[in-house]
Amino acid sequence: MARRIPTRLGDGSLAEMTAAEIEADLYAGSEAAVGRAKVAPLTEDEIDHLLDIFTSPAKFSAVDYGDEVVLSFDGSGNSDIGAPILEQVVYQNHHGADMIELWHHDYSYKAVRTVLSFQTRMLKDTQQQTVVPLNYGAMPDLGRYSQPDGPAPNWSELLTQGRIQEARDAQLEAVEHLERDMWCVAEAMVAAGVDGLDFDTAGAAGDADLLATVRVARKVRDTWPYIGVEIGQAAELVLGMHGELEYEGTRLAGQWPLGQLKVCEAAGATIFGPAVKLNTTKSLAWNTARACTLIKPVTAEARIPVHVNAGMGVGGIPMTPYPPVDATSRASRALVDICKIDGL
């Protein structure tokens, strides 16, 4: 009887699989990405390497000497200490963070703008106490500008009523509000001494959300060429909530990670963060193979650093608040070894 190896499902729960079952899942995960995104599958050598990683009985897995990458740690700090500046110091000193990020609990540029003076003061104080580069991060979060929480008509309701043009107009109205808030925060943070801005989970509300993000990114880079702009994506596919929006001639809806990269490069971003979500009922081998297949073409063509989102529920990391060490380390190593990423 074949030896059963401890591994995990996408929800983090333990599962035991044979090496043959894991290998089959690696091929299936890669094929799942090929079928949707029209990318090349992983090679046999790459599958063999992933098989070595996922069939190892070791509790921990790591990259080879010299292959270490930069960890940008969006949303660094856990809010458990209750002292945001101190938490940045903890991430710098005790978690080996190469970059850190100050953020507000209500992780949205719309919310941040209402407490901006407090956040800029905190950022300035953080810069006095830390050495590693410091981002300020939040979500563009376009949905917050729709009624009843925001000023624009609710396009999700309009779409279900078949009022397509009104839904599109509402999104463009929201884009104007979002760009204004993102720019307001950017100006204040640069004045306070920030090293870079993180536009996190861009495209979460679809193509209009991403459009506002890349427009502001372009403006930031044109205004302050030495201020970094990291654009982290919300998912592997940009939803066409509007459907017709373009940035510099590229339609945003339906873009997979490689297309998202091109748009972010055109906007002047300095770091691109692809996000590939998990299927919680599939094995980590399946999910990691799928993520690697979608991200490999990105790193092959990128002109800017690629920092893959690898946290709870994305990038092969289980969808749980406390991702197990065995799972996290395997996904971390796999992304570096297979995709030749620049960071996480």
Binding site: F60, S61, A62, V63, D67, E68, V69, V70, L71, F73, S76, Y91, Q92, N93, H95, G96, A97, D98, M99, V131, V132, P133, A310, G311, M312, I317, Y322, P323, V325, T328, S329, S332, R333, L335, V336, L344
Partner: peptide, 19 residues
Amino acid sequence: MASSHALASGMGGMRTAGD
């Protein structure tokens, strides 16, 4: 999770030249 990534694939931040 932060520590797992740091040990598995990170440069090391201020302990090294990661920053």
